[in-house]
């Protein structure tokens, strides 16, 4: 993101979002049900991280470009964090163990930052694989939550679990439709690739 006047406002919105999510009231409200915990709170934490990442990516580029060529390190970090929080017992633990809860509020925004710093650097093929993976993983996860014969999280009701599964399936369908629409009508991948590939070349020159 190029520095603009709106940037401080954007930053303030992200900070306010993070603070309200982390506040006892915000946590109590969103963590009461599996649906809001998994499908609202956790994605919001990642999105807020992405917001911080967008603001800081230009400033960070000289320091991280060497270690994050093609965005691979950052994307792997994002995937790793996402996989960890997909473990049902990790979500259970966040409810009863403050260390896990704190780790969640740190790691998910960090994953968002890493994503924002890296996605634009990735080659279109890597982006495509990532997008396709996200869609099919949402589908498989949604099915798994709906098909599970037992409660996956001890802290949540079975009906919650089914709703969360349906929510994941819906998220997968929306994501797939979004990507399909984008390539059919806008071809956003193209313009962004050209812009950021030159940016990353500059960055690696700086790093040398």
């Amino acid at each position: 993101m190029t520095p603009t006047r709106s940037q401080p406002i954007f930053l303030a919105v992200c900070v306010a979002g993070l603070v309200s999510l982390a506040s006892p009231l915000g946590r109590q409200f969103l963590e009461a049900s599996l649906v809001t915990h998994m499908l609202v709170q956790m994605p919001l934490l990642v999105f807020i991280g992405m917001g911080f990442g967008r603001i800081s990516s230009a400033a960070a580029a000289p320091y991280v470009a060497t270690w994050n060529r093609g965005g691979s390190t950052g994307l792997l970090l994002t995937l790793g964090v996402a996989m960890f929080w997909m473990l049902p017992r990790a979500m259970d633990a966040a409810l009863v163990d403050m260390r896990f809860e704190a780790a969640k509020f740190v790691s998910l925004p960090v994953a968002g930052v890493a994503l924002a710093w890296s996605y634009g650097q990735a080659s279109p093929i890597v982006k495509g694989v990532l997008n396709a993976h996200v869609v099919s993983a949402l589908g498989v996860m949604g099915w798994a939550y709906m098909a599970a014969p037992v409660r996956l999280c001890n802290a949540y009701l079975a009906s919650d679990q089914e709703m969360a599964g349906a929510g994941l399936l819906a998220a997968g369908a929306v994501t797939a439709a979004y990507f399909a629409m984008r390539i059919v009508f806008f071809g956003a991948t193209r313009s962004r690739y050209i812009r950021t590939s030159s940016a990353s070349d500059d960055a690696s020159i700086v790093a040398y």
Binding site: P124, I125, G128, I183, V184, F185, F186, G187, T189, R190, Y193
Partner: peptide, 10 residues
């Protein structure tokens, strides 16, 4: 990717 690069969008 190549089609979008050449034609702008699918």
């Amino acid at each position: 990717r190549a089609l979008i690069q050449r034609y702008g969008s699918l």
